[in-house]
Amino acid sequence: MIFVPVTYRGGVYRHNEVVDLIEDIGGYIVQKQVIASDVVLLCFVPKDDVEQLRSFAKPLGGEVIDSPLVGTEIAVVIPSLEIHHLPHPACDIAEYLRRLGAKSNMVGLARGVGKRIAALNDEERDVINEHDIAVYVLGNFEKCIEHKMPILRRGIEVPIVLCGAPDKEALQRITDPPVEGYVGNVGRFMHRTKESDELAKMDEIIAEITKVLDTKRVSIAKDPISVSPARLMDLIKEHVPEIHEVTSPTPLTVQMNGLRVKLPYDTFAGQIRSIEIEDGVKIGDVSDLNPSRMRDYILIKIRPFSETNIVV
């Protein structure tokens, strides 16, 4: 079954019926947000049933939008968490990604500033590698980006989208070896992105990220993962009641080929490993559970079919 990431936006009135329908057609709700009288559901729905959901939502005043970023965890990497980069442009980009369904995390480097002194430590490298994609938001000078980019990307294995003030061609010219995506004319600035040309730039960043994610999806499809991350999410919700006590907005963060479980590794990893998915196949049989470098969370990476010979 092919799942499509979509967002449902509508009112609180009869939204439970929409939730029921998504579950009945075999879909998964990744995140549910109730904001005053509005409801936003980020979900995966079987491709053939999207139209059914759309026509069901119409009389309720709701809308179903394709959201390619749903079910992805994106790292927004900035040289530091100081006023030079926050809240603009880093928060603006992270917030824009969140609005479109992605789970974005801001990674402010401890020593990412300057040209000569810029560095990336092992914890930062590992945290970035836990994401599906990393968006590097760098500064205004071609010379600086050229000098520090090789240092800041050392050991990074996930696809990178590079944003900086030089235009796209200049970024492509100075980045060796090339990264997966480039967005030019987005450097350091100190005002809120609200003008139409700035919002168009945000859309350009989203388009570039979507392009890179699509490439990653194609490569995953060549050797499909043994189980859908959204299905694992549902199973953990069902079998580990403690997850409902977690106050984080996304206690279970769905990634393209894995899942971040915001429970302590030492206490819950064994329990999660032994959860049966189907016909005696357990979560531990089709995935690797590792301690995350982010707090004491659990990071589940689902193994591909070529390794397990199982698809459930």
Binding site: N140, F141, E142, P166, R188, F189, M190, H191
Partner: peptide, 19 residues
Amino acid sequence: PEPLGAEYYKQITNDVLLD
């Protein structure tokens, strides 16, 4: 030396001084 960088820094300076 980088004209685009100068443009960006002019904008940053303007924003910060206004703020």
